[in-house]
Design a protein around this nucleic acid. Structure first.
Lengths: 260, 260
DNA sequence: CGCTGAGTTGATGACAATCAACTCGGGTGG
DNA sequence: CCACCCGAGTTGATTGTCATCAACTCAGCG
């Protein structure tokens, strides 16, 4: 499980202004009125770029920023002392990274990029103020956390009680739907397939398996005519049968549910 | 996995008034000023009692209320179509039950009592309003959700990457600390042990194991002089070695961290 | 050209599931 | 009061899923 770490830098290009942000409708600032966006922009630290396979921050690190993922794929993970890694969740554009109960504490988890990513940073120290000054942001944060909570619970259900095949099928459907719901924000999708920068080892670390066993599981899914994960693409061949195998209900699991 | 279901009734005794609530300091309404408690009380539906081993609500049910657990133990769980059960988290007094992203949707999970429980109900339909009218409640909800999120992530880490012994040790330490931090609110604790209404089958369903294998794992923990779970009590014999085995860091995992 | 990272395949073994029988303690009703 | 019943726990034997170890292919790349 190799990772690379570099000091990462501010985008050299002119920064995307919040007013023009195509991701805003998905992110924490959904629904923030235009006249308040300057306020948001003031809080925002900067936009950052990071190549694939680099840590945004590490577990235990005293990191100053939290982020909205602006483009690319990333994942949240934790590591055991024996080196074993568990991917907690995959992050797509619009997802918020780095929120945790105690904002002044070291990070309880790490985040790594799967592709090149662009991140909009916010000082963690300012988050509490942002959320208590603006009830719309607090509501939105509650909604986004609730979605992540539902994802985590379903993930836990799989890790505890599903077979390797069921788990992988579930992950594939979850990511397939999440990516497709982003439309043009994450390009490269067609009717039955999506761009998929996730290695077999990554799948293994997400589902609590070994890379070797993931490989055999992918073969099974292919032989069954269910799905093909290859060449950095994921193709769903038979979604109904996949959904049945994985016990996946798109409505119940996903979607951006404002709680109010 | 037997469960019982009855219509459950309002406490016949006079209801605990929010002003006098000993659990308030732990719950959603922590920090709410006394002069606002009438407001809280108005939203509150009623106080309910339910015997041990009964569902508060079931997965998929269209349940009108969310709850603060006032007394007793409960757990949140999900069930697969093949009947396998995954306990997502254990709930202790002060914990909030029934919040999810889409408040108008059927419940994404079920809740069952382990002991007799008392629950303070709030109409789910009113929650959004409560949270948007009162920023202190929204902040508090964010904090409580973040704690549950951290618990879920650690749980997932265990289910995916830890051995049976490590998982059970972790669960024991988590519950041991959570119960002790409640002090007199949940009586029956002494220096090294707590009251523990959790069967081996419950442990199994929480940790993704079988009851048989949990039994063998408990024997190992006992033979190693680490912990004894018996007679509805949990005794931690050697907390440092337990913490090392489980990779459990009380500071990082638990505690009531206001995010501001 | 050889290096490297990802993927593939086979052989073997460990951990936990499954199946089955039995104990034990606490009710309950005859 | 005792027999019985039942749920929870205990133990042994066996099976199966997935981990581990190892060797090899293959594509991309400096």
């Amino acid at each position: 499980m190799p990772y690379k770490r570099i000091a990462f830098d501010v985008t050299p290009e002119p920064q995307t202004r919040c007013h023009e942000c195509p991701v805003r409708a998905l992110a924490l600032f959904k629904g923030v009125a235009d006249e308040h966006l300057d306020w948001t922009q003031d809080y925002r630290s900067n936009q950052y770029q990071l190549p694939a396979k680099h840590d945004v921050y590490q577990e235990g690190e005293d990191h100053e920023l939290a982020y909205t993922l602006f483009s690319g794929w990333a994942f949240v993970y934790k590591t055991l002392t024996n080196g074993k890694r568990q991917i907690i969740r995959f992050a797509l554009p619009g997802d918020f990274l780095g929120f945790q109960a105690k904002l002044t504490a070291p990070m309880s988890h790490a985040v790594q990029s799967l592709t090149q990513v662009t991140l909009c940073g916010f000082p963690r120290s300012a988050l509490a103020g942002m959320l208590s000054e603006r009830t719309d942001l607090a509501s939105r944060m509650i909604t986004m956390n609730a979605r992540d909570m539902a994802l985590c619970q379903n993930h836990l259900m799989g890790a505890g009680r599903k077979s390797a095949k069921e788990r992988v099928a579930f992950l594939f459907l979850e990511l397939f739907h999440r990516v497709k719901s982003l439309g043009e924000i994450l390009p490269g999708s067609d009717e039955t397939s999506i761009a998929f920068p996730v290695s077999q080892e990554d799948i293994a670390d997400a589902m609590g398996l070994t890379a070797v066993h993931v490989n055999r599981t992918l073969r099974e899914l292919k032989d069954d005519g269910l799905a093909i994960a290859t060449h950095r693409r994921l193709e769903i061949l038979d979604e109904p049968r996949m959904a049945e195998l994985a016990q996946f209900d798109a409505e119940a699991v996903l979607g951006d549910h404002p709680f109010l």
